[in-house]
Simulated scan of single mutants.
Amino acid sequence: MIIVKIGGNILDNPERLQSFLSDFAQLPGPKLLVHGGGKIASAFGQRLGITPKMVEGRRITDAETLELVTMVYGGLVNKQVVAKLQALGCNAIGLTGADGNIMPATKRPVKTVDYGFVGDVAGPESINVTALEAIVEARLTPVFAPLTHDTQGNMLNTNADTIASVLATALAPKYKVQLVYCFEKKGVLQNAEDDTSVISHIHTEKYKTLKEEGVVNAGMIPKLDNAFAALQQGVAQVLICEAEALTSINTAHYSGTTISLN
C-alpha cells in the first residue's frame, strides 16, 4: 500500500499536478492520496472577501473559514483531482473524514491560541479501517481532502500531513505501508536556499541534531514529527521528495530523503 500526500504548491501548478497525477495513476497495487489546498483556499477566500488568519503558519478556522475550506478542499480541489485521475484510468473516489465515518476527530482545545474549527485525530485506533478496507478491496483509490468531523455534525479543518500519517499507521497492520510526502522541493534540505542540498537519510538521532542546529524548522518539523510517529507505529517506510520523484521511489535512482528510526 502506497500512501501519498501531495502539497499545495503542486496543486497550484496545473502542469506539475497533471504530471504528478499521471505518475500516481501508474503506481501498482493499492494506493491512497491525501491532498492539501491551503493556497487555493486563501485565493478563493480573497475573491469572497475572506482574509486568511494565520498564526505561526497555521490557519485559524472560524465559522466563515470552515465553510470556505469545506467548499474548496472537499469540493473544488478534491473533485478536480478525482476527475483527472478518472481520465488517467485510475478509479478514484473522493472522501473526507466524515464519509463512512472513516476519520472522526475532536475540536482542538483552546490553549494560548484559539484555532477555531480545527480537528485533532486521536490516532490510528480512531480510524474506521473496516470501511476504508472495503473501499480499497473494491479497487477504488481513495482521495482524501484535509477535512474530518466531530461526530456532532460539524466538519473540522485538519492538517493533511497528519491525516496521511494516521491513515498509514491505521493500515499498517493489514498492509506493508509506504508513506510518501511529495512537495515542490527535492527532499529535506541542509540549506533551504540550495535545492541540491538534499539530506538523503534522517534517523532519530540525526533529526534531533538537525532541529538543535536550526537546519530543520517551521513547517518541516510537523511533517517530520508525523513521519517518525508513523514509523514508530508500524509503517514500513517514509519518504519525503519532490512530486517528480514519485516513479523512482522504489528504484536505485531515488534521490529524495528517506526517514528511518535508526
Rank of each mutant, 00 (worst) to 15 (best):
M1S: 01
P104R: 08
R108Y: 00
G57F: 11
L48D: 02
H253D: 15
N157D: 08
E133L: 15
E193R: 14
L224V: 05
P14V: 09
S248T: 15
A92C: 08
T158C: 09
G119Y: 04
E184N: 15
I199S: 03
I10E: 06
K31C: 08
Q178Y: 10
V188I: 15
T196L: 07
L167R: 03
V129W: 06
P109A: 12
P146S: 02
L95F: 06
C182L: 15
N101P: 00
D120K: 03
L27S: 01
V72Q: 00
N226G: 05
A168D: 01
Q80H: 13
L239C: 09
Q152K: 14
G37K: 02
A243D: 11
E213Q: 14
P124C: 09
T209I: 09
H203T: 14
I93Y: 09
V69Q: 07
S260P: 08
L95G: 00
A92R: 07
S255R: 15
L246G: 03
G8S: 12
D114R: 04
I202Y: 05
L189A: 07
S126A: 13
G37H: 04
N101T: 10
P173G: 09
L171I: 06
T169G: 12
V55E: 11
A145L: 11
K5I: 00
D194N: 11
T148W: 03
H149A: 07
P222I: 02
E242H: 15
P28T: 14
V129E: 01
T61C: 08
N9T: 10
M103C: 13
P222R: 02
A134P: 03
T158L: 10
A172G: 06
T247Q: 15
V235E: 05
I199D: 02
T204D: 15
Q232N: 13
H149V: 00
I60A: 02
G234C: 01
L224H: 01
H203Q: 14
E64P: 07
L33D: 01
G234F: 01
E15N: 12
G123H: 09
K79S: 10
P142A: 09
Y207D: 11
P28G: 13
G89C: 07
F144Q: 04
G75R: 07
S200I: 04
G7W: 02
